[in-house]
Amino acid sequence: MNRKGFWIALFLMPTILIFLLIYAVPVFTVVFTSFFDYRGFSGRMTFIGLINYIQLFTSDSSFKKALGNTLIWILLQSTVHVAIGTILALILAKKRFGWKFVRTSYMIPNIISASALGVIFLNVFNPTYGIVNSIIKIFGNKNINTNWFFDYNTAFFTVTITWLIYAGLITILVLAEIMSIPESVFEAAKIDGASDFKINIYIILPMLRNILATCVILAATSMLKEFELIFLTTKGGPADLTLNLPLYLYKTALIENNFGYANTIGTVLIIMGVITIALVTKLFKFGESDV
């Protein structure tokens, strides 16, 4: 090893050690123990091969529901959520009156703690005094008493609303990228007679490819770890209608004390995360040059 290589290795060592201790060892433990019957606090483990996986994919209706919900939320978050944030960034980039105020205020839901947001939404959607039912009553339907979080027809939609439309982080990231595009690009397009719409579609959006890929990865993976808002509002109910994989993992590990089975769910989550990132990277040609 030459002198330069030695220094590189030396400086990388702390990062590699921290990564191994904080991430690699726990990930290995999760995957390893998913092949065991591992319950309670006794620490006793019995090797059972693929039985946890077979049970998960063949006879566990809660897992199927949680997996389906997680996939739907990943899809919605990486499309609708990112689209909302991007459209708002495109509008704000025109720097019309009050754009700074809108940019700041749209970030507020992102800086409020999830526990506070959960309580806020429980009150907003409360069937008797919640603001949603109160507004609907003002506009005509005096008899409305929909219990938004716990009605079979509205629970999934209501839980989804608690994060889907609050795309402040996406807006900030995309807006920063738009601001970094040289002004001369827009001037050249305008001289060629391009409208604002055409500039957005044919010039700005293609130049945002990398940041949009980053946003989609952030949005999609956030749904692989979404927990607090569901736990604080519906706890995955009614029945399993709003259950997702992180919440199911939590319940299996900490309420049923079935750590082996919970780690099987954890392994599925890790694989889903890797597949999501690989798919988005490929789809957006993330990191590749435009030329």
């Binding site: 716990f150 079979y152 519906t234 706890k235 109910g237 009614p238 029945a239 399993d240």
Partner: peptide, 9 residues
């Protein structure tokens, strides 16, 4: 608790 709504409704 998560299935009470199903029973109630």
């Amino acid at each position: 608790s998560t299935n009470y709504p199903a029973l109630a409704l």
